[in-house]
Amino acid sequence: MTGDIALFVNPAAGRGRGAHAAQPAAQVLRDAGFSVRTVLGLDGDDALARAREAVSDGTGALVAVGGDGMISLALQAVAGTATPLGIIPAGTGNDFARTLGLPLRDPAAAARLTTGLLKGQGARAMDLGRVTSGTRTSWYGTVLASGFDSRVNDRGNRMRIPAGRFKYDLAILAELASFRPVPYRLALDDGRVLETDATLVAVGNGASYGGGMRICADARTDDGLLDVTVVGDCDRTTLIKVFPRVYKGTHLGHPKVTTHRVRSLTLDAPGITGYADGEPLGPLPLTVECVPDALRVLAPAASGSAPENPGAEPSASPR
């Protein structure tokens, strides 16, 4: 393996934590004998182009410093290649890192784990979700959200104040006041077509979104399957009661919740935008498939769904 490492940094992640996390991470990598070059972009498109260039140039690993949005960009550069992905969590949600059992509040510790794996057992393979929307294809690692949760993201993204997570708390309240279940059509890979009014449909390669909300609590990243959680036709009172249970995954036992396990599906609903890893994909319909072993990731060996991390910062936003 080449000793060159590309440190892919989002300085603005976690309201500035990305910039602070990059320095100790880079130092740990250099102290371990790696040559580190920092990859920054003027915007998302430029950052992705630079990350792809680093992968094309043969970097030994692309190590992303930031939150789930930054990991999402990194996935577009490394998915389907031999280049391993390392992760230094520095966002507010950090669900990808949580799924993989990585340290969430200690960039130096995350970097030490990364260097140990680079010098030892190396990267392990994991599945990714691949989404097709028209002619556009993109990859994700955690959860694809649609419905109530994606509308919260839509509303939160339009709000300029307040800043931070509280903006999404207000967006939830606003959506609760106005949201109605919408008619979904789900075409599953076994030939079944489900037409149902639903509050939300989530498609999980991993278990959680929104900083630890275990919407697809039984999902694994190494089974070649996607877990689909359908929250049915709920009134506001039921939704308020059910939604907090998502942090422990106990919502899956509620009679309004059904689950499916598939290799692929197409989901459609009017007026709904899909989000994956907290990033907008565009309006439904979307076709989603699980691609086994699509990513080489620098993380501990998989051992089922990741446990709750005591350092997690719960968030009401599905980002």
Rank of each mutant, 00 (worst) to 15 (best):
L239P: 08
P183H: 03
Y275T: 05
T259I: 06
V193P: 08
S178L: 04
L194T: 09
K256Y: 02
P255G: 08
R192T: 15
T221M: 14
C216P: 06
G211I: 01
K167N: 02
L281A: 12
G304Y: 02
R214P: 02
T258G: 05
L194G: 06
T196V: 14
T258A: 12
D277P: 12
Y168H: 14
D235P: 10
E279A: 07
G304E: 07
T258Q: 15
G210W: 01
F179D: 04
C290F: 12
D218F: 07
L284Y: 11
K241P: 01
D223S: 13
T258K: 14
M213F: 00
L200I: 09
L225N: 03
D293T: 10
A219F: 07
R296E: 10
D222V: 02
K167Q: 14
P255N: 00
S305F: 04
G191D: 01
G249Q: 01
G191F: 11
V288C: 08
P300F: 04
A187L: 13
D293P: 05
G271L: 00
E175C: 07
A171I: 13
P292L: 07
L188M: 09
A269S: 01
N205Y: 00
N309Q: 13
D169F: 02
E195R: 12
L298Y: 03
F243E: 00
T259P: 05
A217R: 13
R192K: 06
T237S: 09
V257T: 13
L225M: 01
K248N: 15
A269P: 10
D293N: 14
C290L: 13
T250M: 03
A219S: 15
E175A: 02
L173S: 01
V201W: 11
V262K: 04
V201T: 07
D169R: 13
L194V: 15
P244E: 08
E279C: 10
R263N: 03
D277L: 05
Y184K: 07
A301T: 03
C216Q: 12
V193G: 08
T199M: 14
D222H: 11
